[in-house]
Simulated scan of single mutants.
Amino acid sequence: MMQIGDYRLYSLDVQDFALDGGAMFGVVPKVLWEKLAPADHLNRVMLKTRLLLICGNGRNILVDTGMGSAWSEKLRAIHLLSDFRIEEELQKHGLSPADITDIIYTHLHFDHVGGAFRPDGDGLVPVFPAARHYVQRENYLSATAPNQKEKVSYSPVFIEAFGRLPSVELIDGSAELFAGIEVFTSNGHTRGQQLVRVSDVSRSLVHGADLVPSSAHLPLPWVMGFDIEPLTVIDEKTALLESIVEADGILYFGHDPFNEAAVLKRGEKGITVDSFITL
């Protein structure tokens, strides 16, 4: 657990899944990225869906929801998808899905929004019945009419279910959602991605979303094949990492298979990990 201002922060390890290694590391040669993310015989690398849980001021806030359980056996096999451990992870902190008051989505790609729903008959129902849902308006519009590159990442089933939720707030740009919790936008991975910063007068933590999904993606040229504008990702990553170092802040990784978060440092090889930390 980490305390920042009035909030207690926890990392929830809710699911394991695999994606193509080439897609995760773009044009970076496999001989380099495989040292940090070993691949199987189908070139898949194992990842985590780590959810940031923020508790305080009468709220229990999740950042993203993971992939969830509403997947066919075929897709579960392709992604090596584990069981969805959301209830077990919340129970560690005396909570249940019904206790979640708010969910901030970095964006609506399937591995960030799928966990908001569970199968019920032929349809989907919300996993978090009392939650209010926050996403950038631009990202929601992108999800409802995805470009050709992103069609595989925005699942129509999940987006349609998201559109039926009773309590959705569409955000336009940077905003302070709650005291000490703000969002700001990043457009290189997908239009209208939002990163979340929790801060007080002496300390801050930024959720790296899919701008920096793992510690392996800290080198500036290490962008993903999923990114719609790789050069924009590099510029945004440069600015983000510089701001975190300047603030002596912490970077949280939503997909790192080994590490939850890190303190960063500036050195001869640019900005790298000073130390890994757990929440």
Rank of each mutant, 00 (worst) to 15 (best):
4 I>P: 07
7 Y>E: 04
7 Y>P: 05
8 R>T: 13
9 L>M: 11
9 L>Q: 06
18 A>P: 01
24 M>W: 08
26 G>I: 06
33 W>K: 02
33 W>Q: 07
35 K>Y: 11
35 K>P: 00
37 A>E: 03
38 P>T: 00
40 D>L: 05
40 D>W: 01
42 L>M: 12
42 L>H: 14
48 K>M: 14
48 K>T: 13
53 L>Y: 09
56 G>P: 12
57 N>C: 11
58 G>V: 13
60 N>R: 10
63 V>K: 02
63 V>Y: 13
66 G>D: 14
67 M>G: 06
72 S>N: 09
74 K>E: 15
78 I>K: 13
82 S>E: 08
88 E>V: 05
88 E>R: 12
90 L>D: 07
90 L>K: 05
93 H>L: 14
95 L>H: 03
97 P>D: 05
102 D>G: 03
104 I>M: 02
104 I>E: 04
105 Y>P: 03
115 G>R: 11
117 F>Q: 00
125 V>D: 07
126 P>D: 08
130 A>Q: 15
131 A>I: 14
132 R>M: 01
132 R>H: 15
133 H>V: 11
133 H>G: 01
138 E>A: 12
139 N>V: 08
139 N>M: 02
142 S>C: 15
144 T>F: 04
148 Q>C: 11
150 E>Y: 02
155 S>F: 13
157 V>S: 15
158 F>H: 07
164 R>V: 01
166 P>M: 01
167 S>G: 01
168 V>W: 08
170 L>C: 09
171 I>Y: 07
174 S>E: 14
177 L>S: 12
178 F>W: 13
179 A>Q: 10
180 G>T: 01
180 G>C: 05
184 F>R: 08
185 T>Y: 01
185 T>A: 08
186 S>W: 01
187 N>K: 04
187 N>V: 03
190 T>N: 03
193 Q>G: 09
193 Q>S: 05
198 V>R: 11
201 V>Q: 15
204 S>A: 03
207 H>D: 13
213 P>I: 00
213 P>G: 09
215 S>P: 05
215 S>Y: 14
215 S>L: 14
217 H>G: 01
218 L>W: 06
218 L>C: 09
219 P>V: 00
220 L>N: 06
222 W>S: 13
228 I>D: 04
229 E>T: 05
232 T>F: 00
236 E>Y: 01
238 T>N: 10
240 L>R: 03
240 L>E: 08
240 L>N: 03
240 L>M: 03
241 L>S: 08
243 S>M: 10
244 I>F: 06
248 D>C: 06
252 Y>W: 14
254 G>H: 04
257 P>F: 02
258 F>K: 11
260 E>P: 04
263 V>F: 08
265 K>F: 05
265 K>Y: 04
268 E>H: 09
270 G>M: 10
270 G>H: 07
272 T>W: 10
275 S>R: 15
275 S>F: 00
277 I>D: 06
